[in-house]
């Protein structure tokens, strides 16, 4: 498939707030991207505004505070999506089409049962939760992430395993927790399935605590994919380091890509995957 034919739906509801830049960056890389209100996909919009999920090649759920995150981050968005879009979503994922959740979008994917999805494409119950940060408040800070994926993830094949990238954390609920009694087993399964994508590290490349791990997240997990690697959720924002001049310390670096930052790799990665696969 030619890049200019790749169609990206950046889906939002009230309180989603990273949709504009996400659309802009997919377009910047040559794809067709549009922001789509969830109700346009669930047939709750006027006829001429309705959209079919199946018409898209990539589904993105961007960051924000969907419906205020008032119950728990991502819960309301996930519930609305599951109640009316379950069949379409499962078909989309089964077809191998990429689903991309950033920050609040990651929270939505976990709440919806689409990640880590150990028990099926979309599990009935969430298998994990993104809980309140250890600091008990919002954390907006640059994060260093080590890419840990051996190749299963459709989004990160443009990066080398072990490579460290800078993204921007900005969340109050980023602490990935699994049921305590099953945590070890789940972690082992995630590693065995090559579902771990990014982990937080410090400035010496070590798995470290706060503030390098901004939330206290289990095993320093910052990003996961499903078993097939086409559903990907990442807590820190890659789009906020899409360009070189968004990187927090760009005035200190003389070298490197003159235009782009680390975050572009993820957008580029998924587009290349779609180009090759479909």
């Amino acid at each position: 498939m030619k890049r200019s034919n790749v169609r990206v739906a950046v889906v939002y509801i009230e309180g989603t707030n990273c949709e504009d830049e996400s659309v802009a960056y997919f377009r910047h890389l040559g794809a067709q991207a549009e922001k789509v209100h969830l109700k346009q996909l669930t047939r709750d919009a006027p006829a001429d505004l309705r959209r079919d999920l199946d018409d898209y090649d990539i589904l993105m759920i961007p960051g924000g505070f969907a419906a205020g995150d008032y119950v728990r981050a991502g819960t309301i968005f996930a519930a609305r999506m599951r109640s009316k879009l379950s069949k379409d979503l499962v078909a989309f994922v089964k077809a191998g089409k990429p689903v991309f959740g950033v920050c609040n979008g990651f929270q939505v994917l976990v709440e919806a049962g689409l990640l880590p999805a150990l028990g099926g494409v979309m599990t009935e119950e969430p298998e994990a939760v993104l809980a309140t940060n250890d600091s008990s408040h919002y954390e907006c800070r640059p994060s260093l992430l080590r890419m840990e994926n051996a190749g299963s993830c459709a989004f990160t094949r443009t990066l080398k395993k072990g490579q460290i990238v800078t993204f921007i954390s900005a969340h109050a609920e980023g602490k990935l927790l699994f049921p305590e009694d099953r945590e070890k087993r789940i972690l082992k399964e995630l590693i065995d399935n090559d579902q771990v994508v990014f982990r937080f590290v410090d400035d010496r490349g070590k798995y470290a605590g706060y503030p390098w791990n901004p939330s206290g997240t289990t095993f320093n997990l910052a990003a996961l994919c499903n078993r097939d690697g086409n559903v990907f959720g990442v807590q820190p924002h890659p789009e906020r380091c899409f360009f070189r001049h968004l990187r927090p310390d760009w005035t200190r670096a003389d070298q490197g890509d003159p235009v782009y930052g680390d975050g572009k790799a993820v957008f580029e990665g998924v587009l290349r995957h779609v180009e090759r696969r479909f």
Binding site: D20, C140, A170
Partner: peptide, 8 residues
């Protein structure tokens, strides 16, 4: 505590 990066 303030999101100073949103809108990228």
């Amino acid at each position: 505590q303030y999101d100073h990066e949103v809108r990228a």
